[in-house]
């Protein structure tokens, strides 16, 4: 019962939205001045087919995924009402083909694939599916939504605002990534599971060559939410909802889960290499010690201590 009521409510509100867009604003103008409209409205009118965002995202992960990363994936699922979650996929070399098939089967247009390796490293594949490009990120600094220090909360399925830092427009690969993010993380307008209000904002910003993701709830002080239309702008505050993560692009491919490499991160070092280096560092510790000891010995030999003239002064 409750569900039904909600549904009808959303429906009741949504048509007014649409009307605001097209008909309600037009109608008086049409009657008064004929066809003199705002340019924007005219464009939508004149375009042959009204644009309709039919994005659908397949979200899945590899087998043997870490619990933390799995929770992150589930959080992403809860944030995106236009996604479909699927079973875990074996992460092997032929996973690209499997995933493409899966995406087609689920009639999705893009895919987020969380690939966990060695129970430690999380890679995120972001792909546009039939033919589009795909990006492989490594994910760092993961905080899930369950963490208690993230105190915000928002409607499930309300459409987020996407705030990008301006350095997304600096380079070709960032531009591409930005486009993909807007398509995948933006919830289609009038999606049937979405809600008609905007009470959270996704923040993407590039710092240090990484994309940092944050999700904030938008709040205004209580009993003024109806007045927000007029003067609540300054009182607006954000509360973090989570999850947090940081994406470091590794490669961009031409096809989905494969194809020609279009971009390679020149600064990227794989975590395996880092670990190997660390290990070697540890191994070097002993060698260093031995060497230092030897050097000390040599130094002592070459610079013998001067005999101390006061050495046996107090012995008599």
């Amino acid at each position: 019962m409750v569900k039904k009521r909600k549904h009808s409510e959303t429906k009741a509100v949504e048509p007014t939205n649409k009307d605001d867009d097209n008909s309600v604003q037009e109608r008086p103008k049409r009657t008064l001045l004929g066809w003199k409209d705002k340019t924007e409205v005219k464009e939508t009118e004149s375009s042959p087919a009204v644009f309709r965002n039919k994005e659908k995202v397949l979200v899945t992960c590899s087998r043997r995924i870490n619990y933390r990363y799995r929770h992150l994936m589930l959080n992403v699922v809860s944030l995106l009402p236009h996604c479909k979650k699927d079973n875990k996929v074996e992460s092997k070399s032929s996973k690209g083909a499997t995933l493409n098939e899966l995406v087609e089967l689920k009639s999705c247009s893009s895919c987020l694939f969380f690939e966990c390796r060695k129970h430690k490293d999380l890679y995120l594949w972001m792909a546009k599916c039939p033919s589009g490009p795909s990006v492989k990120f490594i994910v760092n600094a993961v905080h899930t939504m369950e963490e208690l220090k993230l105190t915000g909360n928002h409607l499930r399925g309300s459409r987020p605002l996407l705030s990008f830092s301006s350095n997304f427009d600096n380079d070709a690969h960032w531009k591409l990534v930005k486009e993909m993010i807007t398509q995948i993380f933006g919830i289609p307008k009038e999606h049937r599971k979405s809600k008609p209000y905007h009470d959270h904002v996704f923040n993407f910003s590039i710092v240090d060559g990484h994309i940092w993701f944050r999700n904030y709830q938008i709040t205004v002080p209580h009993n003024e939410s109806d007045k927000v239309a007029r003067g609540g702008l300054d009182k607006m505050t954000l509360i973090e909802v989570g999850p947090r993560f940081c994406l470091n692009p590794i490669k961009i491919f031409g096809g989905s889960f494969g194809g020609p490499t279009l971009y390679e991160n020149p600064l990227y070092v794989s975590p395996n290499q880092i670990r190997a280096l660390e290990k070697r560092q540890k191994a070097g510790k002993y060698a260093k010690k031995v060497k230092a000891k030897k050097r000390r010995k040599m130094h002592e030999l070459s610079n013998p201590l001067e005999p101390n003239e006061f050495a046996d002064m107090w012995k008599e």
Binding site: D21, E40, E43, T44, S47, F51, N53, K128, S131, G132, P133, R159, P160, L161, L162, S163, F164, S165, S166, F168, D169, A172, H173, K175, L176, E179, M180, T182, Q183, G186, P188, K189, H198, I252, G254, P260, T261, L262, Y263, E264, P266
Partner: peptide, 28 residues
């Protein structure tokens, strides 16, 4: 770093220019 390829791909997937901001909801 294949700039042309990246741009081309972007043009492939990008939404039409005249799509209203309300679909995108993105801000720089």
């Amino acid at each position: 770093y294949n700039r042309e390829g990246l741009d081309e791909k972007r043009q492939d997937i990008i939404w039409p220019e005249n799509v209203g901001w309300i679909h995108r909801l993105s801000i720089d």
